[in-house]
Nucleic acid binder design. Structure first.
Lengths: 353, 353
DNA sequence: TTTAATTTCGTGTGCGCACACGGATTTTTT
DNA sequence: AAAAAATCCGTGTGCGCACACGAAATTAAA
């Protein structure tokens, strides 16, 4: 149980500590024969480097960089908090963390920041692939420099990424479907609202909608509902309002409960209208713990919010880099975080931390 | 931004590094005057000890001990996994972790193990206060030896504990109430089943039931339901079966959906019966990801499970000890983990890790 | 074979801190 | 005032590893 040190290996292999160190970090200047001998002893003695001593001795700092949207709301602050929480735990190992921020609505700014990040030659990167046109080209620069990067929140298949940390969007749509299936009587009406922004950030919507539809199409036990999908630009407030009036009716006294699934965090826009018109026979499900959404959840206009664990996304992405780069461990390619179902009753426990 | 070291302080305070070290660890042999001077410089320079160098230099190992039920099922394995995951991250700092296991149904064994644990004089303890008669007396030994202990899963108010990591039981009852409120039409019947074990481990049940009742009594928006609480010994299978038949009726063709809330993880016992009798008009909510419960969740006999994050409980309890003892940080007295709402659709993400 | 060029390897130093040891200073006793 | 005791403090060593430097061993060139 006593720990094996480099000099143990040196002694056993009949060489000096310096030589062992050279083979461990394969920085050459070792003959093939002794190299193999040392490797053999390392395996035999099950040597594991002491990360504490190692990081103390090596004066170089490992530099991480993160590309994130500006923390304009409660949601996008959370990944940054998670990033910093993780950093706090590992900074003693000589890890630094630099954040590059971009406006969620500014594509050029995104790529500018990505370039600046790349120029800074970090040792590891966390980023959200919000804008995907021409993204692969920018990422290639990272790959070519041998800089590993972790995607957070949004998946982007390009084969080169070290890991993805986020949510299974399609499956989250199924969760929403399940909730409304329970809340709305069979034969009832359910609307899917895709509140699209022309400025990007819509990549999740399609998978979520697909998951929702699939639930009702293929699940044997699913109830029978009438499902109608509505695509509308999130900026067109009055169009949204008209659509709601048209489809929900203004007649308050019908007891039938209807369901509305908003496929992103803009669910508060629907809630605003429902609240104003005092609709109470509509069950509303949407995404993310924005301030506005939380308010509506607390006064029962929104019934369920699906949480994406933004804090954990940040935390896990940094830890993934740390494990891969500093600890030199294998890390899972795709880390799907739990799909949280949040109500008025349990929201408080999701807010802090 | 360059880090402040002990010798920086020594120089600034006009003393030697050894003296600075003595005041940092208050191990005396320093005159009051120089002591204050050093303290002043430490504050002035915002010195923070380098935990990496510190743990490398100090040869002593910090010993943690945990008292847990035997991992007889999926649920009770999880805290142990969390314990070990945390330990894996901090063992490099010279932390050891010893587990003491007891049978969930053996009170004497519990106290035997607790005594053995205390005898081993660990530096920090994690434990579940399953049996509470005479517990305070045993805990006093720990307190008197200055050994901090963290409660996991179950709260036990004795004022001396370092921290509690677990779930707010009462609030989890409210969550269950919310779910059944949505699933059962107003005027419908809801049963609360308290499946009691004479062998202990019932401490959560009361708070959960209370939370459930409170939801329907005090929440303005709550629907109107008929609620009936049933207490029954979990071992008396046929009595349970009779109760179910009596209250649910055997008549399958009534469309009214009824609700059943089981206040602990034995919800599978109810599900077994419902499945056998092919009841499909009952919405069933219970606790914890036992194998049996998972099976019933997957085939829709159980509709919701409330998760207690057992893995995170283990993980957080060890990290709390680490932060308090090694890092010497303040730790929150009560760490209430999120109340997870789990359905067939999101369960997979709660199972691994 | 001798010398030069290469390759291979051992030694030494320091990262920041903890702690042992003994020396210096002050206080108490004689 | 000198000696003894008590208090206070500085120096040195090592934790396990990374890395620089230069020496030794080997190979290539003369």
């Amino acid at each position: 149980m006593t720990k094996v040190t480099i000099s143990d290996i040196a002694e056993r292999a009949g060489v000096s500590a310096g030589t062992v160190d050279r083979v461990i970090h394969n920085r050459g200047e070792v003959s093939k024969k002794t190299r193999e001998k040392v490797l053999e002893v390392i395996k035999e003695l099950k040597y594991e480097p002491d990360i504490v001593a190692s990081s103390l001795a090596s004066r170089k700092t490992v530099r991480f960089a993160a590309l994130l949207p500006e923390g304009s709301n409660l949601f996008w602050n959370k990944p940054a908090e998670g990033l910093n929480a993780a950093w706090n735990e590992i900074k003693a190992f000589g890890v630094s963390l630099e954040e590059f921020r971009f406006s969620y609505y500014d594509k050029d700014g995104f790529f500018q920041q990505l370039n600046a990040l790349t120029e800074s030659k970090p040792d590891g990167v966390v980023l959200t692939p919000v804008f995907t046109d021409g993204l692969n080209e920018s990422l290639k620069k990272l790959s070519e420099s041998g800089i590993p990067y972790v995607f957070i929140n949004t998946q982007w298949e390009n084969g080169e990424y070290l890991a993805f940390v986020g949510q299974d969007s399609k499956q989250s749509g199924k969760v929403a479907a399940r909730l409304l299936d329970y809340c709305v009587a069979d034969g009832g009406q359910i609307f899917i609202f895709n509140l699209i922004s022309e400025r990007g950030g819509n990549s999740h919507i399609i998978s979520r909608e697909r998951g929702f539809i699939e639930y009702f199409s293929y699940d044997q036990e699913a109830g029978q509902k009438n499902i109608l999908t509505i695509h509308v630009n999130a900026q067109h407030k009055e169009e949204i309002e008209n659509l709601l009036y048209r489809h929900l009716g203004t007649n308050q006294n019908k007891k039938d409960i209807r369901g509305v699934f908003v496929t992103n965090s803009r669910v508060y826009q629907i809630a605003d209208i429902l609240e104003k018109e005092e609709y109470s026979n509509v069950r509303l499900v949407g995404y993310d713990l924005l301030e506005q959404n939380i308010r509506h959840l607390r006064n029962n206009t929104i019934n369920f919010l699906i949480g994406q664990k933004p804090f954990e996304q940040g935390y896990n992405s940094v830890m993934t880099l740390f494990n891969a780069i500093v600890r030199k461990k294998e890390v899972p390619k795709n880390k799907f975080l739990p799909i949280d179902i949040i109500t008025k009753e349990n929201i408080d426990f999701y807010l802090n931390l």
